[in-house]
Computed example of a mutant assay.
Amino acid sequence: MKKHIVKLTAACVAITLGVVIGTHLSSQADGADAKPGSADDPVVTKSYVDQLFKQMGGELPAGGDNGEAGIAAAMEVVLVPAGKKIVAEEEGTEFIVRSGRAVAYSADKDGISNLTAGKDLTNGTAASKNHLLLSPRPGRGVTPDPKVQNNTLIVLVKGKHAITAY
Rank of each mutant, 00 (worst) to 15 (best):
H24A: 03
H24L: 09
L25C: 03
S26N: 13
S26M: 04
S27G: 03
S27W: 04
Q28W: 00
G31S: 13
G31E: 08
G31P: 10
D33Y: 10
A34H: 05
A34I: 14
P36C: 10
P36F: 05
S38E: 14
S38Q: 07
S38D: 09
D40S: 13
D41Y: 13
P42D: 11
V44L: 12
T45M: 11
K46Q: 06
Y48L: 15
D50N: 15
Q51L: 13
L52I: 09
F53L: 14
F53G: 04
K54M: 09
M56D: 14
M56K: 14
G57K: 03
G57W: 10
E59K: 05
P61T: 13
P61R: 09
A62Q: 08
G63S: 11
D65H: 04
E68T: 06
E68R: 05
I71F: 08
I71H: 12
A72Q: 15
A74F: 06
E76Y: 06
V77Q: 07
V80Q: 07
P81W: 08
I86R: 00
I86M: 11
A88G: 03
A88R: 03
E90A: 12
E91W: 02
G92M: 10
G92Y: 05
T93D: 00
E94V: 10
E94Q: 10
E94D: 03
F95W: 01
I96H: 01
I96V: 11
V97Y: 05
R98L: 11
S99I: 00
G100I: 02
A102I: 01
V103H: 06
V103N: 05
Y105Q: 02
S106Q: 09
A107E: 14
D108Y: 12
K109W: 04
K109G: 05
G111R: 04
S113G: 04
N114L: 14
A117E: 13
A117V: 05
G118I: 07
K119R: 10
D120W: 12
L121T: 02
L121A: 06
T122M: 13
G124I: 01
T125N: 07
T125A: 15
A126G: 02
A126N: 12
A127T: 04
A127G: 15
S128L: 04
K129P: 00
H131C: 12
L132I: 07
L132C: 07
L134M: 04
P136L: 03
P138C: 00
P138Q: 13
G139P: 03
G139A: 06
G139C: 08
G141T: 00
G141M: 03
T143G: 03
T143P: 00
P144R: 10
D145A: 14
P146V: 09
P146M: 15
K147A: 14
K147I: 01
V148Q: 15
N150W: 02
N151I: 06
T152W: 15
T152F: 12
L153W: 01
L153H: 00
L153T: 06
I154V: 13
K158I: 04
K158P: 01
